[in-house]
Structure formats: C-alpha cells, structure tokens
C-alpha cells in the first residue's frame, strides 16, 4: 500500500488506536493512520462519520480522546503547543471575527502564528490581491460574500507557510475560476512537500486532487489508498460509487423514486 512507497519520506502524522465519544455516543472507534509529507489526503465519509472530530483532535480543539496522536514525531498531549505553528486550518463553518476588517483579522492571525505585524500585513495584502480582493482589504468581513470569506480563511491558514494544512470543505462558496486557482495552489503546495488533509463531500474534486483517499464510516477507516487502488478493489468506476458501495448505501435509486412520487402528489 501507500506506506511502503512513501517510507523514504518523513512521517508527519501518526495516529494509533484513536477513540473518542461524546457522552455515551461513540464517534471514533479505533483509527490507525500514518501520513507522509507531500500527500494530499482526501478525507471523506458520510455526515457524522467522525471526520471533523479527527481533525479537531489533531488541532487540540477537542480533548478527552483515547489513543495516541503524534504530529512531527511528538505526542500532542505532551502540553507543548509549538506544533501548531506548522499547521494551517480552515474550519468547516466560515467562522471568523467578522466585525474586523480583512486587514485586522489577517494581521491578528498572522501575529498569533508569530509573524511580525508588518510582515503579516504585507503578505496578507499581496495574497488578497492575488485572489482579486485588494479592494476590500480594509472592509469589514461582515460585508463579505461567502466566497470572499472562504478566501480570507484560506489566506489566514497559509500566512505562516505551514507544513500541514487541514482544510474542511475549502472550496465551498467559491466560483469555478477560484476553484481552479485553489486546486492549483494545493497541488503546488503538495509538490513542495506540504501535507494537505482535505475533507469534502464533493467526490469529483476529491477524486481529482487527492493522492490518497481515506474513507471514514462509523468512526472507522473503511478504505485507504489512491483512487486507482480503491477502484481496483471495489470494481466501481467513480469515487461516488465507491463511496456508496463502502458505506453500504445502495438504495439511492429507490429513495429518489419514492421522493419524486411524494413530490408529485399535490
């Protein structure tokens, strides 16, 4: 599998027997995972499979898990938060302090990552310009459209040139041209040796940009490999079909048919 091919590269994330539950509800039931530098990992699974929870545990946002999580070789539970300096994060919901202007927000985040204020400002401004947002750099984020907010979030996750990127639906709200740009950016970053952890519900995109796909279902990894490998194993043509197959969901045609029949009774 992937691991053997990649052993020459540095192992950046290593998860052993990760378990997590909210109250009595189990979320993660024993995740084992090794991630190497330069990989773009498509992290997919149905709602509630535990995708966000895994990412949040790695970022230290969620506590109370069992098992071991190592990032850059260090156990993240050891209390040293320095590893976060090499991580960029785009959360699922576009959460930011939107009463601030883009300049203020990006400057703030940059400084939290240890950049000087001038450097953060300079860099943020040029990145905003590349996304065509130079005009609104001094405007409040609350006036931004969904796509503009998403771009600000992407920039805020990249300002400090991180080695690992956690992206949760990073393309939501972006127009087709911006999607092209971001996809290119991700590919280029991976080529530079950065690791990208990408979770999304849009299978076409995941299929195209991922070098390795992880499918999570019911708190367990049920598939792990490149798209070609998964296709060979399951004899399906698209990632969408593989997804349906592995999550045991076959009746989509029946559901659709009965849905339409309900629509048609007036």
């Amino acid at each position: 599998m992937i691991e053997t091919a990649e052993t020459s590269k540095e192992r950046v994330i290593s998860i052993r027997n990760l378990e997590m539950s909210y109250g009595s509800k189990p979320i993660l039931q024993g995740i084992d995972l090794d991630v190497y530098e330069g990989q773009i990992i498509g992290y997919i699974g149905p709602n509630g499979a535990g995708k966000s929870t895994t990412v949040k545990i790695m970022l230290g946002l969620v506590e109370g898990y069992q098992g071991e999580v190592r990032i850059f070789g260090r156990d993240i539970a050891d209390g040293d938060i320095e590893y976060k300096r090499r991580i960029g994060y785009v959360p699922e919901v576009a959460e930011l302090y939107d009463s601030l202007t883009a300049q203020e927000y990006l400057g703030f985040v940059g400084e939290l990552y240890g950049l000087t204020q001038r450097k953060a400002d300079h860099k943020a401004r040029r990145l905003m310009t590349k996304f065509g947002l130079e005009e609104v750099y001094f405007d409040r984020i609350s006036s931004f459209s969904k796509g503009m907010r998403q771009k600000v979030l992407l920039i805020s996750s990249l300002l400090h040139n991180p080695d690992i990127l956690f992206l949760d639906e990073p393309l939501s709200g972006l127009d087709a041209n911006s999607v092209m740009i971001v996809k290119e950016i991700l590919a280029a970053l991976a080529a530079e040796g950065k690791t990208i952890f990408y979770s999304s519900h849009i299978m076409d995109v995941v299929e195209k940009i991922s070098s390795r796909i992880l499918l999570l279902n019911g708190g367990q990894i049920v598939a792990d490999g490149s798209f070609e490998e998964l296709r060979e194993q399951s004899h399906e043509r698209s990632l969408e079909q593989i997804f349906n197959d592995l999550t045991g969901f076959h009746e989509y045609k029946d559901v659709a048919a009965s849905f339409v029949s309900i629509v048609q009774e007036v």
Partner: peptide
C-alpha cells in the same frame, strides 16, 4: 464560540 476554532487552533 468562535474563540475555540480561531484561537485554540493557533500556537497560543
């Protein structure tokens, strides 16, 4: 609640 995602994910 934004504090969680914005601040806790940073090296702070």
């Amino acid at each position: 609640v934004r504090d969680r995602n914005i601040l806790f994910s940073k090296p702070v």
